[in-house]
Nucleic acid binder design. Sequence first.
DNA 1: ATGCATCTTTGCATACCATGCAACTTATGT
DNA 2: ACATAAGTTGCATGGTATGCAAAGATGCAT
Lengths: 225, 225
Amino acid sequence: MQLMSEKSAAGGGLRERKKRATRAALAEAAVRLAAEHGAEKVTVEAISAAAGVSVRTFFNYFDSRDDAFVVVDADAGARMRRAVLDAPAVLSPLEALREAMAAELAEAEQQHELWRLHAKVLHASPHLLARGVGAHMAAEADLADAIAERLRGVGDTGGPGSGAGPGSVTGPGSGLYPRLLAAVAGAAVRTSMDHWSAHQEEAAFLDVFHEVFTLLAAGLPAPSA
Amino acid sequence: MQLMSEKSAAGGGLRERKKRATRAALAEAAVRLAAEHGAEKVTVEAISAAAGVSVRTFFNYFDSRDDAFVVVDADAGARMRRAVLDAPAVLSPLEALREAMAAELAEAEQQHELWRLHAKVLHASPHLLARGVGAHMAAEADLADAIAERLRGVGDTGGPGSGAGPGSVTGPGSGLYPRLLAAVAGAAVRTSMDHWSAHQEEAAFLDVFHEVFTLLAAGLPAPSA
DNA sequence: ATGCATCTTTGCATACCATGCAACTTATGT
DNA sequence: ACATAAGTTGCATGGTATGCAAAGATGCAT
């Protein structure tokens, strides 16, 4: 009696596949409709119709209409967590995070067209952009845990704060560093995407991404005039 | 859209004062009710009743119910912008930003009790936390502009991108640095608040805040074990 | 293949959110 | 005091979101 925990791994039963297909269809329909008509003019009814399901079913998949525009691959967090944990020990935490995020972004690039539409839609309505940021926060929490685990060295698998220990509250052991790192890296990625989104013709995304992390690693020095 | 006409500075006519009072009453009622009953259980009707206005009037002040929980002082952005521009020239951009934000946070601390309730409410429902993050993005854009202006030296007051210039797209002149700085500093502040919120009894907020910016300026080095 | 247990979809009812509009009330300037 | 601009309110309307129970798929063991 397997507990059927493989919620996100490929394949599985027909049920899982169908659910994933429906979810993807809804998300894609939402993005395409929003790109064409503007996000605010797209009703749940229209999205549901385009995906071939009832309105009620839409709400079985998303907690709110806006979620459909914002959804990022739900297990990107898990993948990045793994990438951070598996990264070579010689990499600094920031570097490990950079590599994990770069890999994830490369993954997203495979659905090239949808990714761009997505960016377009979010960029067009600040309201959704904000929600997108929020969506990343859960992933950032996962990343913070992964970083904390990596810092402790493998072995202690306790959750965050399990080994609060005697360190200073603001110092190591408080969990502040991993969370800061995850939050800052997330902000860096969003800034990169935003900048690239506004200069798509002029710069490659990876160039922006690279420069941003270089700036971070250097402590955000004032640019020499 | 919103009413929110001209002046946000103190005083003025009776009208302005009444509007500010009503807005404050609504925001405060929203936060207090949410702190007591949970944000999701608080209806617009309840908030409006507590503030002594009609439901319709509520929507004259806020675009959505959640906005009432999230509202940060609307002209905090303008004040920080000013602080960044007026900061001593010897400060690095990151330092100038740190000082501006510290001043703003000290300001918020004056309404101590409300600030804590606010933090409690946002922390209790991730949904609102995300929205709060979004609310800061507008302020971050203002800050990015201020930083850009500061970097150019005073004089050119043009908007963002006005001096795109001939620099490399990822280099200075592209506006990437100011935006990154603003976004990262914002993430740092949120991380500080979050961490402090979870360790309120153990650490002073300013200690956390200070450590976070020290880490940033050092390039987020791996903590020595 | 058959039948049962489980999960998913769907329609319906209900409540709340959000906006436009018109009527009414309250400040402001002269 | 008068005219005007600004703010408030109720009503109507349409979209969003959830609980519930019936109907339709799927998984699994026999």
